[in-house]
Structure formats: C-alpha cells, structure tokens
C-alpha cells in the first residue's frame, strides 16, 4: 500500500436486513489531512464511520486504517484511532475530570500521568472550572467538548468525528472547528462527517459526498464548490408572469424553483460583480424581481445540483455514476 494513506476503503457494502445502506463505497484519505464525509440524514455516514472504527463489519469490501485491516487487525487499529460518536459517550454521574482520568487509565497511563493528562485536556477545552462537576450538569456544548477531549487522551493518529458540531451554537461550533484545525496541524488524520457544506468547506482538505450508498462526488472543497455553487441568489418575482420570465431567463442556472412562493434560486459565486451581472441579465428593465437574498448553498442545493433530487432522510436507491471533480 502507499505509505502516505491513513485510510483506504474499496467496495464497502453494508445492509441491515433488506435495506442496503452502503453499496460500494471507495475512499482514500492522506495521512495528516482532514477528510469530510458529507451526506444527509440516513445516507450511511455513521455506518461508514462505525465500520472504519472497527465497531461494525462490512458485508463486502476492504478497509484499511493506519495501514491495518479493520477486520483482521482490529485490535491494533483500535490502539491508533479514536472515535467521537454522534452522541456524547461520557458518564453523566462522573465529573469531567473523572471521565478523562478513566480514559487515561484505559490508555495505559497511571497515577500522576493520568491526572496530568486529564488536567491538560480540561484546560485545553476550556473545562478547567467545570472539571470537578458532574457531567450531568454540563451544557450540550460542554459535553461535546469533553467527549472530544476524551477521545484525544490516548494521542490517536487517526481521529473519527461523527457530526461533531450538530446541535451546537455558533460559538461552540467555532471552538470545535479550531480544535480540528489544531489537530490537523499536528499531523493527526481527521475523518469527520457532517451535514453542513460550510463545515466541510472550512475544515476539510478533501470532501466526499455520500448519497444512496455511494460516493457521488469527491474532491477538494474548491473543486466541489466549482461544481456546486457556493452561494445562491434567491429571487422573489413580483408576480406569476414575472416569475415565468425569470425562470426562462435563468435557464440551467436555476438551482431551485418554488412557483407557489414565486421564488427562484440562481447559483452565484457570491461576489458583487457576479450578483450585479446576474440581476441585470435576468431583469434588464428592473421590473420582474421584487426582492432578493444571498445565502450560502445548503446541502440540499448541493444535492439538487449533483443528483437532480432533493436530499431526503433515509432514502436508499441506486444512484448515477460517481462524478469525479
């Protein structure tokens, strides 16, 4: 195998009963990089992470993490990875410090070393003051931070983060992003899943989009954004006639249309010249558009553009060919 790959996945398949969740996932992640797996609810992100973290077995395909097979060498894989699941996995009845010290013991640290490591991580995650309180009393954001701290105790070389920022407020999300950026800077490989395009954009060196059990697009976030506009210009027409004219004028650039709301989404790169040009082109006389907003493209927009269908939770169906960008 190539020496610089931290994760290699080929032909991964997994079904639960009659429901096929993964139907041939291929991925490679370079050592020391941040990789984001993007997908809507039920697309199989957690399933993929669980297979890579040796917690679940694939029906077909091979996966190597840190150069080791996740089935045959699972015990050795486990000594090099850490998993922060989608839901915080810490004991509410223990204090933050006790939780971390327990993880330290499980990582082979003893006595002073264990306490020091726990203290170090509490400081680093801004939990020093809360360290002696039971986790039950923590806020959701504090819990997620402690959960991530717990996964770093053993200094893993590959870190799996399953939706690390879902349910966090803006400030906690940014704190989490900083941590991930720091980790990446220290040579650790980070594999994270997310539902937010923005998050993948901010953090990841490479992004893969998972849908219908396959990776339907893969590349750097810049490459991906070139395919899927980073921003949408949402136009609201003054009336139904104007709406029809706008849709005709936009042609292939229309990413979404909502006739009932007289609403039309047009892809843009978000720059002032581009927006000005678009407005001028679609509405030369200045009488069709009532008002407009500019917003960052959501995962739904990415999906509509990449697959031609909206991202629905839990749907599984064979998909079009993988788009390599």
């Amino acid at each position: 195998m190539a020496v610089d790959l931290a994760i290699e996945v080929a032909g991964l398949e997994k079904s639960f009963g009659a429901v096929s969740v993964l139907s041939g996932v291929d991925l490679t992640v370079r050592r020391g990089s941040v990789f984001a797996l993007l997908g809507p609810n039920g697309s199989g992100k957690t399933t993929t992470v669980r297979i890579l973290a040796t917690l679940s077995r694939a029906d077909a395909g091979v996966a190597r993490v840190a150069g080791l097979d996740v089935v045959h060498d699972r015990h050795r894989v486990r000594r090099r990875i850490s998993l922060t699941g989608q839901y915080a996995a810490i004991d509410g009845l223990q204090t933050g410090e006790e939780n971390l010290r327990m993880m330290a013991w499980l990582c082979g640290l003893r006595g002073r070393q264990a306490s020091e490591r726990a203290g170090e991580l509490l400081d680093r995650f801004g939990l020093a003051d809360a360290g002696r309180r039971r986790v039950k009393t923590y806020s959701g954001g504090m819990r997620r931070r402690l959960d991530l701290a717990a996964s770093l105790v053993g200094r893993p070389s590959v870190i799996f983060l399953d939706e690390p920022t879902t349910g966090l407020d803006v400030r906690s999300r940014q704190a989490m992003w900083e941590v991930v950026t720091d980790l990446a800077g220290s040579g650790v490989t980070v594999f994270l899943t997310t539902q937010y395009l923005e998050e993948a954009d901010r953090l990841a060196d490479r992004v893969a989009v998972l849908d219908g059990g396959r990776v339907i697009a893969e590349g750097t976030s810049a490459e991906l954004k070139a395919r899927v506009a980073g921003y949408l210009l949402d136009l609201t027409a003054v009336d139904a006639t104007a709406f029809g004219e706008l849709v005709r004028a936009a042609g292939g650039r229309a990413a979404s249309t909502d006739p009932a709301a007289l609403n039309l989404g047009v892809t843009t790169d978000g720059t002032a010249p581009d927006v000005r040009a678009l407005l001028g082109e679609l509405d030369p006389a200045g009488e069709r558009i009532g008002h407009f907003t500019i917003r960052t493209a959501t995962l739904d927009d990415v999906f509509i553009t990449l697959t031609g269908h909206a991202a629905e939770p839990g749907h599984t169906r064979p998909t079009e060919e993988t788009v390599h960008v």
């Binding site: 840190a66 150069g67 015990h75 050795r76 000594r79 090099r80 004991d91 009845l93 223990q94 006790e98 327990m102 013991w105 499980l106 990582c107 082979g108 770093l152 053993g154 200094r155 893993p156 070389s157 720091d182 980790l183 220290s186 040579g187 650790v188």
Partner: peptide, 27 residues
C-alpha cells in the same frame, strides 16, 4: 498534539477490568 504515529498504545486487560470496576462502583 504529537500523535503516537505508528506506536501501539499499551493495553492491559486486568488494568481495564479494574478501571471498569472502579467506574461501576462510582456510578
């Protein structure tokens, strides 16, 4: 955050059991 690149973390089944006993008793 220096990673233990390719070094295995030491494991101790007896140590793990004792740690789990302490945890459960505490809970």
């Amino acid at each position: 955050e220096p990673a233990l690149a390719e070094r295995d973390r030491p494991r101790s089944p007896t140590g793990d059991t004792l740690t789990m006993v302490r945890r459960s008793v505490r809970l």
